[in-house]
Computed example of a mutant assay.
Amino acid sequence: MEILQTKLGADHPDTLTSMANLALTYRNQGRWEEAEKLGLQVIEARKMKLGADHPDILTSMANLASTYTNQGRWEEAEKLGLQVMETSKMKLGADHPSTLTSMADLASTYWNQGRWEEAEKLELQVMETRKTKLGADHPDTLTSMANLASTYWNQGRWEEAEKLGLQVIEARKIKLGADHPDTLASMANLASTYTNQGRWEEAEKLGLQVIEARKMKLGADHPDTLASMANLASTYTNQGRWEEAEKLGLQVMETSRWEEAEKLELQVMETSKMKLGADHPSTLTSMNNLAHTWNSMDKKTEAMDLMQTCVRLTEMKLGVDHPHTRSSLLALDSWQK
């Protein structure tokens, strides 16, 4: 970037591209202020050089919106995301891949705020357009289907979530393979849908498949493998199958590096509290995760205290009947037995 600035000038397209790349590197490290500062410089320079509605400017605006999203600055992310989406529609067309990406990004901003209806509306449009434009089995189409299924799941619309989840699994098996990480992720999501409906046998069957496939594909000590084992242990706990739950929980504990996990999860939780607020959905998720880690480390008192706080805040933020509230309550209930 420095060489290009000296050699070609601060507003040369190649210089601006290098600045945008560096901003992306900062963003991936969580260095939000530096990413934002550089991102704003790129946007202003490109506006002067290329015009306000040039595709390159839309890309840099979308990147900056993503930086805001990662900080939980929802209003700024939404405002910028709407600009990108509307300009993309006018400039590139409603069914252009870049337009659809901007719609999906905006839907994600709504999703992270629990604005399910707005997220759903956009996700449906993206899914239908991608089906027509790219085909029903295209990876991007399947990703949008999985996103919509997740939105249904968060609203407790189990039948719709299940129907869409099954479609994604079957298509990914054919397109990517039965042991592809994306296929396994969609299977894990469907198992979670079954768990939330109390369909224990189906949840167990699918959970076991995911564990075995992840062990072979990723290894027994991979975080995704351990997460699927922990999920199955939770399924056993909810059925009162204490010995099986304990056995699986011990396997996870013996394989996991709990101290490192605890340290990271504490950092995530504290940063989320400061940046997003104590009752933000992402903060609540990090609290839930840390509580489970403490329970697995036999820090029972700390785990229950944190989970009680998590339940109280989740009830206030998302409602008593929300899947996340019910899941936290089930965990807390099982720990108290």
Rank of each mutant, 00 (worst) to 15 (best):
K121W: 08
M187D: 01
A185M: 10
A233C: 00
Q41D: 12
K91F: 00
M269D: 08
A161H: 09
L106E: 12
W335E: 09
T195Q: 15
L330H: 14
S150N: 11
M187Y: 02
E201L: 01
K263C: 03
L306M: 08
P323T: 13
E204W: 05
T132I: 13
G156P: 08
E160K: 11
I57Q: 03
L266Y: 09
M61V: 00
Q308L: 13
L64Y: 06
H180Q: 06
P13Q: 08
R257E: 13
I169G: 02
L164N: 01
A230G: 10
A65L: 00
A77D: 06
L330Q: 15
S66M: 09
K175W: 11
E254Q: 15
V84C: 00
L142N: 02
T59C: 03
W242D: 09
W111Q: 11
M274W: 02
L290R: 07
A188Q: 06
Y194W: 01
T109N: 14
Y26M: 10
H138K: 10
S186Q: 05
K317C: 13
D182W: 09
D298E: 06
E160T: 05
H292I: 08
A149Y: 02
E302L: 14
H96W: 03
E120H: 12
A94Y: 03
T69C: 14
S228K: 01
L276H: 02
P55D: 10
H324W: 00
W158E: 01
E254R: 13
K133L: 07
W294I: 01
N295S: 15
L208E: 07
Q29N: 14
L176T: 12
D179L: 07
E33S: 15
A291Y: 04
L164G: 08
A45Y: 05
I211W: 01
L134E: 09
S328V: 08
T183A: 11
K247V: 04
D221M: 01
A136T: 14
A191K: 00
E243C: 02
Q29E: 14
T325D: 05
E254M: 09
E201S: 12
N28Y: 14
L284F: 00
L218K: 01
Y110C: 09
M287E: 06
N63C: 03
R130Y: 03
L22G: 02
G72P: 10
H222W: 06
R46C: 00
L264R: 13
T237L: 11
Q267A: 12
A23H: 03
V126Q: 14
A146H: 05
L218M: 15
A227W: 01
A35V: 07
E117G: 01
L106V: 09
L206A: 02
T15A: 12
A119N: 10
N112I: 05
G114W: 10
A65T: 07
L58E: 06
N112F: 06
S328A: 15
A94T: 10
G249P: 12
D221T: 07
S272R: 15
Q167A: 07
K317M: 11
W153E: 07
N63Y: 04
